[in-house]
Write a protein that binds this DNA or RNA. Structure first.
Lengths: 203, 203
DNA sequence: CCCGTAAACGGACTGCGGTCCGATTGGGGG
DNA sequence: CCCCCAATCGGACCGCAGTCCGTTTACGGG
């Protein structure tokens, strides 16, 4: 618990220590085995013992590398998170920097919902593995800071820091999962959420 | 897992089977022991084994009565939940029925934040014990239905069912805990959330 | 080529939430 | 008053996530 995966900072880290060859081999084996088992049996019903066995490594190795089941999920999500983060930092409008802040807020929610649709199970694993996990993960911090900056620009009369947290709450993977389990189709959730966001930032 | 505590429906249930005397005695013992241990050591660090031992009952008894650790928390919260539910159904304005729907929405969020401040640990236990727990608990259904009806009346142009879910998201006990752990004082969270709600329902 | 050491390894171990099922007991009917 | 059986009891048991620590291994310097 409470362990940051060693390669969780996508756009930084000048590699403090070179990775030993057996460590690299095992890291790849573990990621491949986890991905395969998750695809085949669903995220919930695959235990860490099983992943370790499938990868041909000991349980200790698995936990030293990834810290927890949530950390393993975060590592598998890392590629997709980084892609969205790059589009926000350097990409074209309306997501990227060459657009009005209000448009970027809406575009962010729209893009995040895509990410959510594609990775709901993994996100849910990474966010619900332990209480408070969602808010300690690095990527949550990124979304939060980005949204805060945009709100500060688009709505100077709001408490941007606090509002950012509250506006991110509807993106909680566990809520989104529950909504999809119920009667709500993804497109309905999307349009309702975007309407809500638009009202908060004043269109 | 996935077990509804026998007495979780506060305003109904005409008592299908009379409770045996030893069962009643043990139920009270368990609730008292749990409350005492939670107060003394904090919710997280008290195990179900410990509660059973303190209450002088077997583990099986504990789980048969309350289904899970979350169910036990729900039973301890039941009194407070019911009190707020009664104020909503029968109490004075602005929470009760003799007020405009928009005012009742705001009053509900205000009152729920009070409940949250007083019972954060127990709520967190009941909502984070298992993925999706929050949305399966009876009281969540009550808040959701109430909010849906109010929104339908106050904002006919919104998708009331879906918006109700999304507006309840910021009340998630795990988020509220994380905010309070950080730099955010309860009054700041309250005023920001109420501002947000007012914007969504159009003042 | 070998050697020392720091790092990685892996499986036995812990404590947890939750389940199972044979033993026990409360309380109404004969 | 006793007897019976359904409901309750309780602790042994399970699989899980996560930890610990003695053993093995990669690899740079001599």
């Amino acid at each position: 618990m409470q362990h940051v995966p060693p390669d969780s900072c996508p756009l930084a880290a000048p590699e403090t220590a070179p990775e030993r060859s057996d460590a690299a081999r095992n890291r790849l084996r573990i990621l491949a085995a986890a991905q395969a088992l998750f695809d085949r049996h669903g995220v919930e019903s695959v235990s860490m013992d099983r992943i370790a066995a499938e990868a041909g490594v000991g349980k200790g190795t698995l936990f030293r590398r990834f810290g927890s089941k949530a950390g393993l999920a975060a590592a598998l999500l890392d590629t997709q998170d980084s892609r969205l983060q790059e589009r926000i930092l350097f990409g074209p409008p309306p997501l990227g920097p060459d657009a009005p802040a209000a448009d970027r807020v809406v575009a962010f929610f729209d893009a995040y919902l895509d990410l959510l649709d594609d990775n709901l199970e993994l996100l849910r694993l990474s966010e619900t593995a332990a209480p408070g996990a969602r808010y300690r993960i690095g990527s949550y911090g990124f979304w939060r800071v980005h949204l805060t900056l945009m709100l500060r620009e688009a709505c100077p009369d709001l408490d941007a820091d606090c509002t950012a947290h509250l506006l991110l709450a509807p993106l909680d993977s566990d809520l989104q999962h529950a909504l999809r389990q119920g009667q709500f189709r993804p497109e309905r959730i999307r349009s309702t959420l975007l309407t809500l966001v638009n009202r908060v930032i004043g269109h």
